[in-house]
Design a protein around this nucleic acid. Structure first.
Length: 771
RNA sequence: GGGCUCAUAGUCCAGGUCGGUUAUGACGUCGCCCUUACACGGCGAAGAUCCGGGGUUCAAAUCCCCGUGGGCCCA
C-alpha cells in the first residue's frame, strides 16, 4: 500500500501556503456575539533590531491562548497592536541620524521617528505573521494613531475634570550643558575624581560630635536628616537625637535606615535634596520636605545663604574653607566616585525639583487591591508582584514628560494669567503647534494662549489598551459586548507598570476591572541564563531562525521548553533539535496515510490499552490548556506520541494493520485505533503547532480546517499505565536479547510472554516474530 | 540598597505543596543496527556531591535557617 503522504519529512516551506489559505478563508475572523473571549494583546514596542527572540516566543504563546480558547468553543477577539510612543525610538532616531532631539525642529524630528517606527514595525508584523499568529492583522492599531491618542487625551481630560490631576514639584535629572531634563535611560555612570569631605556635626544638648562624610558639602543647607545603619552600634544611643548641621546650624534628626553603609566614610550619611538618586528615594520614603538648593540657572539659591549665586563647584570649595576656619572640618580625602553623567554632554547631572503633572493613585490603592483579588492570575504566584507593588506605592503617578514622541498633554495656558485650559474630549490635539480651540480665557477673558509642550508618560497610552480595543466611547454596542476583556497576557517584567496602570486607569474610567484573567510569562534569557542585549552580543534574531526551521518548530520549542511563568533560556541548537519531533509526527502520519480512515472496528486488548493511554493524555493536556500552560500538553504529547504510540503500539499492530495473519475484523480494529489516536493527537497539538497539524488533518481527515474543530474531551477511562510499563519492559527485553545474540530485529526468537501480558500475545508475537 | 524569583548530568527540563523504590524526559555524546512510517530513524550505553553550609527527622532534591550565584522590577 502506497502512503498518501509521500514526502519523508515536514517541510516548513508548506507554512507559507497554509498561511495564505488561512488568510483567504478568513478562518480567524471575529464577529461580536453575546459571549466573546477578548484578548488584551500586548502591543509590542519597536525599539530596535533585532526583535527579541523571547518576545517572539511570548507572542507564539499568546496565539496558543487564542487557539485554545477557540477550540474550547469561545468566540475569540484577538486584536493586534503596535506600541509606538516613547523614549526608545527617540534615542534610536538620534543615533541613527546623528542628531539631537532638542536641536532638531519638532515636526521634523517626529517625522524621522515615525519613519524609524514604520521600518521596525514592518519587521515585527512580518515575524508575528510568520509565526502563525491568528490575530486581526487587517485592523491592527497603533498607539500613536490619531484615534488612539485621542482616546489617551480624552481619558486625561475626563480625569482632569474630575480633579484627579494636579501639578507638583518632582526631582528631575538635569543636564546643565544641554539645558534640559533627561530621562533615566540617558544617564550613564563614570568614575570621577572628587573630594570626600569629613564634617563635624554636633549632637544637640551634648558635647559629642558625629563625623559625616559627603562629596557634596555645598548641599549642607538642604540637609533634612542624618541616617545610620540600624546595625551600627557606634550610633545606637543617639538615634532620635537632634543633630546640629554645621554652617547652617539647622537641627535635623538622626535616624536609622538600611541604605546607610557602615563601611562608607563614618557610616553616618547626610540626606539632602538632592545629592543623588538615593536621596530622592529617602525624601520620598521618609516624607521629608525638600529644600531647593540649586536653581534652574545652575546656581545656589537663597537658601544657601552667603553661598547663594555661586555655582555648586565654587560653593563646595568655599564651604570647605569655611568649615576648616570654623574648626568643623575633620579631614578631606581624594576619592574616585561613581558619578551619574549625562550621556550626551558627559557632565555630571544635578537632580532638581521641577513642576510636573501627577495623576492621583494613592487613594485608589485599596480599590485596586480588591480588583486584583478578583482577577485570576496564571500562574497564581505572579499575583504577588502586583500585591507587593501596591503595598509600596507612596507617591502619585508623575505623568508628564519633557519629550517629543508621545501623546501631547492637551492643555493651553492663558498668556496673560497662566490659567490652564483643557479642550473638549473626543479629538486629537497637538498644543505645541495648534491654535487653542478655546476662544477666551475663562478667568481673565484674554484671547492669547500658549500650548503645553510636554507629552505623557507612555504608560498613559498603553494603560487604556482594553478600552481602545473595545471601542470605548466610540461604539457603545461593541464596547458592551467585548468589555471587560477575558484575559491580559503579558510579560512578568511589566506587571508593576502595564498591568497595574491598566487596572488603575480602567477602574477610574469604567469602575470595572479590565479583564478577569491575567496571564504572566517569564523572561527570555540567553543560553547561559544572562540577559540578552545587543551590546553583549548575545541577542538572537528570531527571523532567520523562523525562516530556516519554520514557525511550528519554533512554537513547539517555545511550548516544550518554557515552563509557564518562569524565565527561560534561548538556544538556537535546542530550537533546531525540536524539529525532530515534528518529523516523527509527520512520519507517523505518513505511515497511517497508507490505511483508509474507518469509523469502527473490533478492538483488541492492545487497542483498548492505547485508547486508555490516549484518554489519559487528553486529560493531562486539558489540565494544561485549562490554565493556558502549554508546557504541560507539549511535554505530554511528545512523550505519548514518541515513546508510547510510535515506539510500542504502532510496532505491535503493524502486521495486524496490514492484515497479515489477522482477520479483517481484527485488522479494522487496528486501523480504526491508529486513526483515532492520530487524529486526537493532531487536535491536541493544534494550538501549539497550527501548521503541521492543519496540513496533516487536511491530508488525512477533512477538507475543513483543524482550527474549526472542538477540543477533545476526556472520557475518564480506566488508567492502564501499568500495562504501558510492562509492555515497554517486555519489548526492551526482547530487543536486548536479540541484540546480545546478534540477531536482526526481524529474526525469530523464543521468549515467553509474561502472564500479565497474555491478552497482547498475538500482537506481541507478530511484532517480535516470537516462536 | 529593597522586593520577588530561580539554582537538579555537557545543555535544557520533570519531581518539590503532601519528606520514603533505582531522581523523569529531551538535546548532545558514544556504540551497534538501513527491521517494508521515519537514519530528521531504531536499539543500547555512559553521564547528577539534586549550588554551598547548617538544622529538623528513623529518613531530605523535597521542610527550616544562613550563605553564594543568575534573572526581573523598584531605588
Amino acid at each position: 500500500m502506497e502512503p498518501k503522504i509521500s514526502e519523508k519529512a515536514w517541510n516548513p516551506e508548506l507554512e507559507k501556503k497554509i498561511l495564505r489559505q488561512w488568510e483567504e478563508e478568513k478562518i480567524y475572523d471575529f464577529t461580536p456575539q453575546e459571549d466573546n473571549y477578548t484578548i488584551d494583546t500586548p502591543p509590542p514596542y519597536p525599539s530596535g533590531r533585532p526583535w527579541h527572540i523571547g518576545a517572539a516566543a511570548h507572542y507564539s504563546q499568546i496565539d496558543m491562548i487564542a487557539r485554545t480558547a477557540r477550540m474550547a468553543g469561545k468566540n475569540v477577539y484577538f486584536p493586534i497592536g503596535i506600541d509606538r510612543n516613547g523614549l526608545p525610538v527617540e534615542l534610536y532616531t538620534e543615533k541613527k541620524h546623528k542628531i539631537r532631539m532638542r536641536e532638531t525642529e519638532r515636526g521634523e524630528f517626529l517625522n524621522l521617528c515615525r519613519e524609524a517606527l514604520d521600518d521596525l514595525e514592518a519587521e515585527m508584523i512580518l515575524i508575528m505573521k510568520s509565526l502563525g499568529i491568528s490575530g486581526d492583522f487587517a485592523h491592527y492599531y497603533r498607539t500613536d494613531s490619531k484615534e488612539y491618542r485621542a482616546l489617551t487625551q480624552s481619558t486625561f481630560i475626563e480625569l482632569w475634570k474630575k480633579g484627579q490631576v494636579y501639578l507638583a514639584n518632582r526631582p528631575n535629572n538635569y543636564d546643565w550643558v544641554s539645558g534640559t531634563t533627561i530621562a533615566d535611560a540617558e544617564i550613564m555612570y563614570e568614575d570621577l575624581a572628587t573630594k570626600l569631605v569629613y564634617m563635624k556635626f554636633r549632637i544637640k544638648d551634648t558635647d559629642k560630635e558625629i563625623i559625616i562624610a559627603s562629596t557634596r558639602p555645598e548641599l549642607l543647607c538642604a540637609c533634612r536628616t542624618i541616617i545610620v545603619n540600624p546595625d551600627d552600634e557606634r550610633y545606637s544611643e543617639y538615634i532620635g537625637n537632634k543633630i546640629i548641621v554645621p554652617i547652617t546650624n539647622a537641627e535635623v534628626e538622626l535616624r536609622t535606615h538600611h541604605s546607610a553603609q557602615q563601611e562608607f566614610g563614618s557610616g553616618a550619611v547626610m540626606v539632602c535634596s538632592y545629592g543623588d538618586q538615593n536621596d530622592v528615594a529617602l525624601f520620598r520614603e521618609l516624607e521629608l520636605e525638600e529644600i531647593v538648593a540649586i536653581g534652574l540657572d545652575g546656581r545656589m539659591t537663597e537658601v544657601a545663604g552667603e553661598y547663594a549665586g555661586l555655582k555648586p563647584k565654587q560653593a563646595r570649595t568655599k564651604i570647605i574653607e569655611d568649615l576648616e576656619t570654623g574648626g568643623l572640618l575633620d579631614k578631606v580625602e581624594d576619592i574616585v566616585h561613581r558619578t551619574p553623567v549625562s550621556e550626551r554632554s558627559k557632565t555630571p547631572i544635578e537632580i532638581i525639583p521641577m513642576e510636573e503633572y501627577y495623576l492621583k493613585q494613592k487613594d485608589a490603592v485599596e480599590k485596586i487591591k480588591k480588583l486584583g483579588q478578583e482577577i485570576t492570575f496564571h500562574p497564581s504566584m505572579h499575583k504577588q508582584i502586583l500585591m507587593n507593588w501596591l503595598e509600596s506605592i507612596n507617591i502619585d503617578w508623575p505623568i508628564s514628560r519633557r519629550r517629543y514622541y508621545g501623546t501631547e498633554i492637551p492643555i493651553w495656558y492663558c498668556k496673560d494669567c497662566s490659567e490652564p485650559h483643557v479642550p473638549e474630549p473626543g479629538k486629537y490635539y497637538r498644543p505645541w503647534e495648534e491654535k487653542c480651540p478655546i476662544s477666551n480665557c475663562t478667568k481673565c477673558n484674554s484671547t492669547e494662549f500658549v500650548g503645553e509642550e510636554r507629552t505623557f508618560d507612555t504608560w498613559m497610552d498603553s494603560s487604556v489598551s482594553p478600552l481602545f480595543i473595545s471601542k470605548f466611547n466610540r461604539d457603545d454596542e461593541f464596547f458592551n459586548k467585548v468589555y471587560p476583556a477575558s484575559i491580559r497576557p503579558q510579560a512578568k517584567d511589566i506587571v508593576r507598570t502595564w498591568l497595574y496602570y491598566t487596572l488603575l486607569r480602567c477602574e477610574q474610567l469604567t469602575g470595572e476591572k479590565p479583564w478577569s484573567e491575567a496571564w504572566i510569562m517569564g523572561y527570555g534569557l540567553d543560553e547561559k541564563g544572562m540577559k540578552m542585549s545587543k551590546s553583549k552580543g548575545n541577542a538572537i534574531d528570531p527571523l532567520p531562525v523562523i525562516e530556516k526551521l519554520g514557525a511550528d518548530t519554533f512554537r513547539f520549542w517555545s511550548a516544550s521548553e518554557i515552563n509557564h511563568g518562569y524565565d527561560f533560556r534561548c538556544n538556537e541548537q535546542k530550537i533546531e533539535s525540536t524539529k525532530k519531533f515534528l518529523s516523527k509526527l509527520w512520519n507517523v502520519s505518513r505511515f497511517l496515510s497508507s490505511f483508509p480512515v474507518i469509523e469502527s472496528g473490533k478492538l483488541s486488548a492492545s487497542d483498548e490499552w492505547i485508547l486508555a493511554e490516549l484518554d489519559k493524555l487528553v486529560k493531562e493536556c486539558k489540565k494544561g490548556y485549562d490554565v493556558y500552560n502549554f508546557f504541560i500538553p507539549a511535554i505530554a504529547i511528545r512523550e505519548f506520541t514518541w515513546n508510547v504510540f510510535a515506539a510500542h503500539y504502532i510496532e505491535m499492530v503493524k502486521a495486524r494493520a496490514y492484515g497479515i495473519e489477522f482477520s479483517d475484523e481484527e485488522r479494522d480494529g487496528a486501523i480504526f485505533t491508529l486513526h483515532k489516536t492520530l487524529s486526537t493527537i493532531l487536535k491536541l497539538l493544534a494550538p501549539i503547532a497550527p501548521f503541521i497539524t492543519e496540513h496533516l488533518w487536511k491530508e488525512l481527515y477533512s477538507k475543513d480546517s483543524i482550527h474549526k474543530e472542538k477540543q477533545v474531551i476526556p472520557e475518564n477511562k480506566e488508567d492502564k499505565s501499568n500495562i504501558t510499563k510492562e509492555i515497554s519492559e517486555f519489548n526492551s527485553k526482547v530487543w536486548n536479547e536479540k541484540k546480545s545474540h546478534n540477531l536482526s530485529l526481524k529474526d525469530s526468537i523464543k521468549i515467553d510472554i509474561p502472564e500479565s501480558l497474555s491478552e497482547f500475545k498475538k500482537d506481541l508475537k507478530s511484532m517480535h516474530n516470537l516462536e
